[in-house]
């Protein structure tokens, strides 16, 4: 997983794009959102990560003025989503989980109508539509009815429609669900470019990789609650330290090697004997030098040495106690097993 392109949260901009306090939404007996707090700094990408039915979409819909919260409050750039909903709508763009465009019309007609609704003049709306279609490589399909659009094209058009008014905050609800890997990568590039123009993006995703790739900060949400929040690195660190993995050339040496590792690093290690691999938590990277010298002094030949950072998958498992795709009911008896494997 690459961290190369990650930008730091813009420190000279103290604005909060989103401040949500104790948001609650109940559908019948189901508390879909059960006291969610979120703070999103302007100019950043914020990821809301959680399994299906965790309350991500409901949260976004409340922040986007599409649903009225049963309790709690939310502000978008300081404007209350309930009391100042019409102002909030002037500051946001929403791209829903299901394409929110008109199926029976063409791409151009869709964009022209949305532009006109946003107050652009006739000629201006046409120009805007043409510009956006070009920007999202949809010019060729501009006149075709949307029925013949692929999923990726529909998402792109949907995103284009959200950008007409150049809103400072954009909500993307699972922007890449159901897209093939190539289209997904294109979508990621688009989202990154968006933030470069000064937008704030709040996106939901079920994919850990997506949150890892895009988001500056992440909130992990489960059963309608935020169960963890922080930067990707903070979340990974919360699971534990990196682990050191050593492969020994001669399997006969493995016991000696293990003793050496435990003596020098002063930790418990585990051994998978069939491949001759030792795994130990690495709290202090400095000690590794001592370890390597000690191993050479003992005459133990290394085949391979690697450092493994915890993945977001592990973060998720640790925090929620169950796997991403797993049912909550199955979680209790399986989570222990899963943890043993990881540690």
């Amino acid at each position: 997983m690459s961290n190369v392109n990650r930008r730091e949260a813009n420190p000279n901009n103290g604005d909060w794009a989103v401040e949500a306090r104790g948001l609650v939404k109940t559908f019948g007996d189901n508390r879909a959102v059960d006291g969610v707090n979120l703070n999103v700094r302007a100019g950043t990408i914020y990821g809301v990560l959680g399994p299906n039915g965790a309350g991500k979409t409901t949260t976004i819909r409340m922040l986007a003025t599409l649903l009225r919260p049963d309790a709690g409050s939310a502000r978008i750039f300081g404007h209350d989503v309930v009391k100042e909903s019409q102002i909030v709508r002037q500051l946001i763009g929403v791209t829903g989980q299901y394409a929110s465009v008109d199926e029976s019309l063409s791409a151009t007609e869709n964009l022209v109508i949305f532009s006109r609704l946003l107050g652009l003049g006739r000629a201006e709306a046409r120009r805007k539509a043409a510009d956006l279609l070009e920007e999202f490589s949809l010019t060729e399909a501009a006149k075709r009815p949307l029925k013949n659009f692929s999923g990726g094209m529909r998402r792109r058009l949907d995103l284009a429609a959200s950008l007409i008014a150049q809103p400072p905050l954009i909500f993307l609800d699972e922007p890449t669900t159901g897209l093939d890997p190539r289209t997904r990568n294109q979508m990621w590039d688009t989202i990154r470019r968006l933030v470069k123009t000064g937008s704030t993006v709040l996106l939901t995703t079920q994919y850990l990789q997506e949150a890892d790739e895009l988001a500056d900060r992440i909130a992990v949400i489960d059963h309608g609650r935020v169960v963890a929040e922080g930067t990707v690195n903070e979340l990974k660190a919360s699971v534990g330290t990196s682990s050191l993995q050593l492969s020994i050339q001669n399997p006969m040496d493995i016991q000696v090697a293990r003793q050496t590792v435990e003596q020098v690093l002063k930790v418990q290690s585990t051994v998978s004997s069939e491949v001759g691999k030792i795994t130990a938590p690495m709290a202090d990277a400095d000690r590794v030098t001592d370890l390597l010298i000690a191993l050479r002094d003992a005459g133990i030949q290394l085949a391979e040495l690697s450092v493994q950072k915890p993945t977001l998958d592990e973060v998720f498992l640790t925090i929620t106690g169950h796997g991403v795709k797993e049912d909550a009911s199955k979680a209790s008896d399986e989570s222990d097993k899963v943890r043993e494997v990881i540690v």
Partner: peptide, 30 residues
């Protein structure tokens, strides 16, 4: 991205009410 930089929130003219003429023009667009 070609589109120009996003206007800062503070520079925007924001109104919480829709005027009658806007309602008519929105309805005609719809």
């Amino acid at each position: 991205m070609k589109s120009s930089y996003i206007k800062h929130v503070a520079e925007r003219q924001l109104r919480n009410k829709t005027s009658f003429s806007q309602s008519v023009s929105n309805s005609l667009t719809m």
